[in-house]
Design a protein around this nucleic acid. Sequence first.
DNA 1: TAAATTAATGGACTAAGTCAAGTAAATTAA
DNA 2: TTAATTTACTTGACTTAGTCCATTAATTTA
Lengths: 307, 307
Amino acid sequence: MAVSEDRIDAVREFNRFYTKHVGALNEGLLKSPFSLTEMRILYELHTANELMAADLAKSLSLDPAYLSRILKRFKSAGLIETLRSVTDRRQRVLTLTEEGRRVFAPYIKASRDEVAAVLDALSEAEQTKLLTAMQAILSTLDGARQKATPVIIRAHRPGDIGWVIHRHGSLYASEYGFDDSFEALVAKVAGEFLEKFDPAFEHCWIAERNGGILGSVFLVKKDKTTAQLRLLYVEPSARGLSVGRNLVNECIAFARQKKYKTLTLWTNSILHAAIHLYEDAGFKLVNEEPHHSFGQDLIGQTWDLTL
Amino acid sequence: MAVSEDRIDAVREFNRFYTKHVGALNEGLLKSPFSLTEMRILYELHTANELMAADLAKSLSLDPAYLSRILKRFKSAGLIETLRSVTDRRQRVLTLTEEGRRVFAPYIKASRDEVAAVLDALSEAEQTKLLTAMQAILSTLDGARQKATPVIIRAHRPGDIGWVIHRHGSLYASEYGFDDSFEALVAKVAGEFLEKFDPAFEHCWIAERNGGILGSVFLVKKDKTTAQLRLLYVEPSARGLSVGRNLVNECIAFARQKKYKTLTLWTNSILHAAIHLYEDAGFKLVNEEPHHSFGQDLIGQTWDLTL
DNA sequence: TAAATTAATGGACTAAGTCAAGTAAATTAA
DNA sequence: TTAATTTACTTGACTTAGTCCATTAATTTA
């Protein structure tokens, strides 16, 4: 467990703050005849439409006995209907009745209004910042959601090139100890790409999910018949999602379509994961030569793919 | 109330998710002899050192009666000491005893461990993303905190240059409609800075708060007697914090110290906020000339400061 | 086919939290 | 200065929320 104390404390502080914040929001609903737990149950029923008691108990971490009693109360108040499930006759399918919806609606509205009031006090920029941040937390902590949203591959947009440089700089510094000069090289390469960009023969692919960039690759024209693959990178957090593979494939397909004869690339022997991708894609090692760059002793490699 | 429904729902969804998430974290502390509320009280005492019951009741939204009883229990268990306040003899000053600290410590540790386990499951990049996001939420929703943490100005580190390019690209695209070629220019300038960086006569300043970059400025050597200020930028979220002013001042101080005679800079007439800073710092407009760049009709300006 | 597991429930209980009323000190108004 | 009001905290009497154990019935696994 090598997580820094600072980070742990920062998260704990956030948790404490947000607990209070949500607590204050819920305060407003306190005058309702429903307890917070009851509200949460009604809310789940409201969104899910059909639910088993067991699902509810699990997703809200409730004692089944306690839940059972609450549901019983709801049923006798005419808020929900319970039907024996046909597939498993132990289970009971729960649904909110029309009456249930009618009764619950104002509280949803009240809850919405409370949130609206908080947002309303913020500027447009602050709202965006808040929502982006919440999205980031959701997608980081909620594994299920993360899997669900697909990785898309698109062309570059303003800001992307800088981001790619930023990530190369940070990542290679922390993982391989590369110094500034590496980031300088990346900035130069990427800057030149943008400057001289010829969409007919060149392309940049950005892999993203939920608005967060997961990887990149560039294809630049070297000469009439040769294209060069450059700046392939994949976020550590996105490993295992075939992001790198898909990016390389896009690159190869584009090179073929544009009638290049050869796709070449330069890399360093320590970048095992990337090299593995190149080999799999059919690239052949054509040259190898040691050099001292980025504050490190490295072995540069040139790989070619005949298209 | 003109807040969009989508945003409200997004916030509500986040609230629901995070409530569950924190609930799950607290589950682990459930086997302790303290209830969640008791924990929160102990935690407040632990950090604040000295506290009145009334403060506690307010900050944790507790019923005074309930709190009073909990405190009574804590006192008879030897966990806290209560002293009549000298300034107001109705109040009682609460402090955790040594014994209290000793007893409470393992639970703090347990809570830390739970958070550490969550973080541990994330990659470095994800951790950073998570913390940045939490920081963003805190600073947006908790106005008080925003003021409290100071902005620091430091030299550049790996990744920073890329970040600066990224932000220039995004920001100028969304605020002024600049196209790719602007980002290309920034990448070239910043890349060259890194490549030819001479610490004796050049410098980059990064303004940051809580690990988040708020602004930047570069000073590069133009010739023996002239230094150029480049790439000044300030995050929209950091406006009004004098970030830009402080960065420009750093720049001027450095230029003076290095015995430059003139500090020059090139900018565009639409960048009012920046120009205002330059004027305030004593720069004089020496040249102005229209140009078509970055997909826009602009008026370029050269400003000089005699040192 | 027996044994183990799961879904749901009731009984008996404890913990958590609330409300109204009171005391003593401090503050404000007259 | 004194009376009225407010504030900090406390106690008593309560309600609500939540837990634990045991049981029944259906389903799954061995």
